[in-house]
Simulated scan of single mutants.
Amino acid sequence: MTGIYDFEAAKPDGSAVPLAEYRGKVLLIVNTASKCGLTPQYEGLEALYRDLQDRGLVVLGFPCNQFAGQEPGSAEEIASFCRLTYDVTFPIFAKIDVNGDDAAPLYRWLKQQAPGVIGTEAIKWNFTKFLVDREGQVVDRFAPTTAPADLRGAIEALL
């Protein structure tokens, strides 16, 4: 795979979505979890999405259970939790792995494009964020503790 538009992601129902559907958009790609101390970031991610989607931002949520088992539910349960608890309207995909031998190909590519601190590729925790420009290039990687509101300037610079 050579670019983000070469990948596809599974919806909670298992159907595939080609990421080429988001060509020309600014993407904020986040590995999420419903039972994490950072879970309230869903609120900030949704606020960014609602405020900036008309200008071309799309937030893509990828649930992951690799960090202390903090995303234990089924794809349907996760999607329902996001809608009911945080009124999430941005796309939430099926649960994936972001590290290890079973890491989703998209996340393998994202980590190669934007290694973390000290050059390590591994995702350290839930709510690591990747910012992708309108041409499909990874612009930056943000730590799990970076609040969504703190990304607004970087996102607006790409819109």
Rank of each mutant, 00 (worst) to 15 (best):
A9H: 12
L60G: 00
K35A: 12
D51I: 07
T145Q: 14
G56C: 07
S15Q: 15
P115F: 11
E121S: 12
V88A: 02
Y107H: 05
A75I: 07
Q137A: 13
L52T: 06
I29L: 11
L57C: 06
K124A: 13
R50E: 12
Y42I: 05
L159M: 14
C64W: 02
V26G: 05
D51K: 15
A122K: 14
L131H: 07
P105R: 05
D101Q: 10
F142K: 00
N126S: 14
L28V: 13
Q112M: 12
L158R: 13
D150M: 01
T89D: 14
F127Y: 10
G44M: 02
L45F: 03
G61E: 09
L159W: 04
G61S: 02
T89N: 07
Q53L: 04
V138Y: 03
R141I: 06
G73I: 03
T145G: 13
G24R: 08
L131I: 05
V58Q: 14
E77N: 05
S34W: 04
Y49M: 10
V117N: 12
L27Q: 01
Q66T: 02
M1E: 14
V139I: 13
C36P: 06
V138A: 01
L19I: 08
D133H: 04
P115N: 04
R134W: 13
A79C: 03
A104L: 14
L151A: 01
L57V: 11
R141S: 01
K25L: 00
G44S: 10
T2I: 10
K111I: 08
T2Q: 15
P105M: 11
L159A: 13
A114M: 10
W109G: 05
T145S: 14
T32L: 11
V17N: 08
A79Y: 08
K129M: 00
D150P: 00
P72W: 11
L38V: 03
P72N: 01
E156I: 12
F81W: 06
P18F: 11
E43W: 04
G119K: 09
A10H: 01
E21T: 13
K11E: 08
I92G: 07
I155N: 02
L131A: 00
L84F: 12
L19S: 04
Y42E: 02
S15L: 10
A10T: 07
N65G: 06
A157V: 07
L38H: 03
L28T: 07
K95V: 07
Y42F: 15
G3K: 11
N65H: 04
E8F: 12
P105C: 11
L48K: 06
E135D: 15
L28I: 04
P144K: 04
T128C: 11
